[in-house]
Computed example of a mutant assay.
Amino acid sequence: MISLKGEDPWFCTFLYGPPHKEDKQRFWSNLSKIRNESNPCWCIIGDFNIVSNQDEKDGGAPINMSQAGCFLSFMDLSIKGGEFTWSNMRSNQEAIVERLDKIIVSNKWSLIFPKAIGILEAATISDHNPVVLLMEGLKKERKREFKFESRWLLDEECSSNVKEVWNASGSNIGQNQFVKKLKTTRVKLKKWSKIKYGKN
């Protein structure tokens, strides 16, 4: 239960849904009972280990609609940053991506926090993308964007910096390592450019 100053208390559940088919129905049944008994102002965040429709999955076998029907009659909170939150870390025809991580809220909760949204962060360690809840929505101020300068291509040091990052942990990389390398390359080039060319 979360009680903020000047606001009615509300409930937040951090959830890890059962991965095995035989446990899913019982799990969702128990969660439904909790809701029906208290009808709370409720927000549920986590890895649900289930998708609610075929649009939340790409690759692999079609979803089991009976399992998808386990979902509570909650609202699916909008999440910015991507369609899918989990990857099996394979490529080509073996690749499967799904939206397993969600934020669902009761109608009562959505009326109290109408600006709330979720943000999908980059997956750097896990095969899941972290989901972050922003109660007041996105702030308008934006971080300064990274821009690759074409003049860097004329400088051999730029190429050396990029090679150093990408050769650091071998050539076989999955989605997580790819994102991490992109971030590391950006940071390295920004620092190098600042030293070599100054702030401009």
Rank of each mutant, 00 (worst) to 15 (best):
W109M: 08
R186Q: 15
F27L: 09
A61D: 07
G174L: 08
K191D: 12
S110H: 09
W192M: 00
L120K: 13
I125L: 10
E145P: 06
Q93R: 09
C158S: 13
D58I: 08
C70E: 12
T184A: 13
T184D: 13
E94A: 15
T184V: 14
Q93K: 08
R142V: 00
T85V: 02
E7D: 13
S126P: 02
R144P: 04
V97H: 10
K80H: 07
Q25P: 11
K21W: 10
N129D: 03
G118L: 00
W109D: 08
R151N: 02
T124A: 01
V51H: 07
P18N: 02
V105K: 05
K188W: 06
F11G: 02
V187L: 02
N49C: 04
D127R: 05
Q54N: 11
P130V: 04
G60Y: 06
S91V: 06
M135D: 03
E98A: 08
S3E: 13
G46E: 12
I2M: 15
L153E: 03
S38R: 15
W28H: 00
S87M: 04
G137V: 05
T85W: 08
E83F: 07
D76G: 02
E149M: 05
G198L: 01
S160F: 00
G6E: 04
E83I: 12
I104S: 07
G6I: 01
K188P: 04
G137R: 08
Q67G: 00
G69D: 10
I125G: 04
S150F: 10
F11Y: 15
E149S: 02
W86A: 01
P9E: 10
N36F: 03
N39K: 12
E22M: 06
L31Q: 07
F74L: 12
V165E: 07
S91L: 13
S171R: 12
W152M: 00
S73P: 09
C43L: 12
S126C: 10
P130M: 05
V162S: 11
V187C: 01
N88S: 07
Q67T: 03
W152H: 05
D23V: 05
N107R: 10
I104G: 06
N172E: 09
N107L: 09
K191C: 13
F148K: 02
S106Q: 04
I50E: 12
R151L: 04
K21Y: 10
G46A: 10
S160L: 01
R26S: 07
A123H: 08
T124V: 05
L189N: 01
M135R: 14
K140W: 11
I117L: 09
E98R: 15
K80V: 04
G6T: 01
I2Q: 14
I34C: 11
N36W: 03
G17C: 04
